[in-house]
Structures are given as structure tokens and as C-alpha cells.
Amino acid sequence: MINTFNFNWFLENCLPFIYKLRNKIIVIKYGGAAMQSNHLKMQVIKDILFLSSFGIKLIIVHGGGPVINDWLQRLHIQPKFKNGIRVTDGPTMEVVEMVLAGKINKELVNLINMYDNIGIGLSGKDAKLLLASNMFDDSSNLVGNIESVNTNLLNLLLNNGYIPVIASVASSYDLVTYNINADIAAANIAQALNAHQLILLTDTPGILLDVEDPSSLQKEINIDDVNNLCKKNIIAGGMIPKVQSCVTALMNQVDSTHIIDGRVEHSLLLELLTSERIGSKIVL
């Protein structure tokens, strides 16, 4: 239906959702395969611009794990992860910042501005957008927890029709640069702004009871069931920070959180503008 435009179908199915979302803030965490495929990347950007054209206020927070891994390996640095979070020593942090803020961020902004001059590229260092402290006791592991978000800057941009595109790198009061997991960064930004929705674009259909069975997708799941799935290791690895981010956002005034498959064309539109949806919606 989305690929072959049907105006009557659009009026009947999509416009009610658009009216409800107008002037609402939606934070989109963008990463995974949808970022690696040029075709999917263009589709995501076009869908974001489509939503923005109806007065929906959008913020993009991006990761870039596969590209970071590629550059680390080129420099003979072994990527390491623990519970879905990248272990980040000094040399790794330099590569993370270079790739996220210097390469991926500017590519995404450039794609937006090909169609409309409303993309603004930022890292957490700009105007102290994200201030962080160390997540761990080990000061050599430069993974951060966000302590504050400069909502004045974001609201200024949103209220003037811009789309902030944010690389998940943060500074600190002692000027240390921290790597912030992009799911966690998106959740913190969403709750700081009292956003209407947090959407995580990922490489799975959503929360599955069986990773080998797409039909086990949980279209709607509450926090208690999410916690039980984590305890049973059904939710594990890179999904842990995603669901934890959604839970944290929900408990801090974000109205709804969604994990959707960025490999599906127009997944954003299908999740936001149709009653069927395609991903997992986590609720209180």
C-alpha cells in the first residue's frame, strides 16, 4: 500500500495519525542495516522528511557500530562489547568520535539537505548538548551516562522547523569525551524533552519470544513482561540497552516507545501511520 500510492487509502488510514502527531516530538534512534544500505538510507531520510512536512517535530540520534568496527579493524584495534555496550578505551574513543561526528553525522545531514535545508548536524559536545559522566568505575573505559541535555538548544531548532541529527558522543565537566550508546542517548533526549514517542530502528522485527520465529513478535508488551524476558535471557546482547532505554523513557513521561525493523522499507511510516504497525510497542 505504501509503495503504490492510493490517495483514498491514505486519507482513510494515515491522516488521522498525522493529525494526532502534528506538533508532537518524536525521537528516532537510527542505526543498523538501514544505515548501511544506501537504498534503505534514502528511504528512511525521505520518510523522515515526509513526516516533518506535516509539522511533526523529529530528532534523529544515530549510532554507527558496523562502520566503527570497520575503522577499528583497519587500525588493528579489536572491537569489544559487554552486555551490548562497546568497551571504549582511549584509542577506540578517538575512532568512535571520528566516525560518528565526522563521517556518519555529516552524511545524514547532507542527505536531508539534498531535499530541504533543515538538517542540522550536532554531537553532544555542541553547546553542551549532552553532558556525561563515566558509566563504570574504570576510568579507562570511556562509556558515559548522560547527566544533562541542553533542551533549550533542541527546542530552538525544533520550533524553527529544523531536524537535529545527533551523534552520540558527549563531553563532561572535566572535558573528557565519552561514547554514549545511541539507544541510551535517544532515550535520555526523549525524556528530557517530554517527547511523545521514542522509536528505535534496529535489525530485528522487534521483541521476539523465539529469535528464529518471526511470528513470535510481541506487537505490544508491558514493562513487567520485558523484565521477565531479560531475566530468562530471551532478551539478551544488543537488545538489552534497547529495551532498557525504552523502559527508562516510559517511566519518565515519554508516551510510547517502539522497537522496529529498519530493514523494512517505510517501517517508520508503517509503525507511526497505520493501526497494524510492524514492530514492538512497549507500554507501562
Rank of each mutant, 00 (worst) to 15 (best):
residue 103 K to N: 11
residue 106 K to L: 12
residue 133 S to F: 00
residue 44 V to T: 15
residue 208 L to N: 08
residue 152 N to T: 12
residue 65 G to P: 06
residue 39 H to R: 12
residue 184 I to N: 08
residue 244 Q to Y: 13
residue 89 D to S: 13
residue 130 L to N: 03
residue 237 G to Q: 10
residue 131 L to Q: 09
residue 63 G to V: 09
residue 132 A to D: 03
residue 152 N to M: 08
residue 141 N to M: 11
residue 91 P to Q: 07
residue 271 E to W: 07
residue 51 L to P: 05
residue 219 K to P: 05
residue 139 S to L: 15
residue 186 A to G: 04
residue 139 S to C: 10
residue 82 K to A: 10
residue 157 L to F: 04
residue 141 N to G: 13
residue 45 I to T: 04
residue 77 I to E: 01
residue 204 T to D: 02
residue 191 Q to L: 10
residue 163 I to D: 02
residue 113 N to E: 06
residue 45 I to F: 10
residue 199 I to P: 03
residue 9 W to G: 06
residue 112 I to F: 15
residue 241 P to Y: 03
residue 72 L to Q: 07
residue 208 L to C: 10
residue 82 K to Q: 10
residue 60 I to F: 08
residue 224 D to T: 12
residue 84 G to W: 03
residue 143 V to D: 02
residue 218 Q to N: 13
residue 179 N to P: 14
residue 268 L to I: 05
residue 179 N to G: 12
residue 133 S to K: 15
residue 217 L to G: 06
residue 198 L to G: 02
residue 245 S to G: 15
residue 269 L to F: 00
residue 193 L to G: 02
residue 83 N to A: 14
residue 94 E to N: 14
residue 93 M to N: 12
residue 51 L to Y: 01
residue 186 A to H: 04
residue 57 K to R: 14
residue 195 A to F: 03
residue 28 I to S: 07
residue 50 F to Q: 05
residue 119 G to P: 03
residue 84 G to N: 12
residue 197 Q to S: 15
residue 172 S to V: 07
residue 259 I to A: 11
residue 107 E to S: 09
residue 109 V to W: 01
residue 15 L to Y: 04
residue 52 S to P: 00
residue 92 T to E: 05
residue 32 G to W: 01
residue 211 V to Q: 14
residue 233 N to W: 00
residue 66 P to W: 00
residue 37 S to I: 00
residue 30 Y to R: 13
residue 72 L to G: 05
residue 5 F to T: 09
residue 175 L to D: 09
residue 60 I to A: 08
residue 267 S to Q: 13
residue 138 D to C: 14
residue 65 G to M: 14
residue 255 D to H: 14
residue 30 Y to D: 06
residue 236 A to N: 12
residue 272 L to F: 05
residue 214 P to H: 10
residue 121 G to P: 04
residue 105 N to I: 06
residue 129 L to W: 01
residue 265 E to S: 14
residue 217 L to V: 12
residue 251 M to W: 00
residue 158 L to I: 12
residue 57 K to F: 00
residue 131 L to D: 02
residue 69 N to L: 08
residue 237 G to H: 09
residue 194 N to S: 15
residue 241 P to N: 08
residue 207 I to K: 03
residue 213 D to I: 06
residue 110 N to L: 11
residue 276 E to Y: 11
residue 238 G to K: 14
residue 202 T to W: 01
residue 16 P to V: 04
residue 69 N to T: 11
residue 39 H to I: 15
residue 236 A to C: 11
residue 46 K to W: 00
residue 146 I to C: 07
residue 55 G to E: 09
residue 37 S to H: 01
residue 207 I to F: 03
residue 198 L to A: 08
residue 175 L to Y: 12
residue 40 L to E: 13
residue 8 N to R: 15
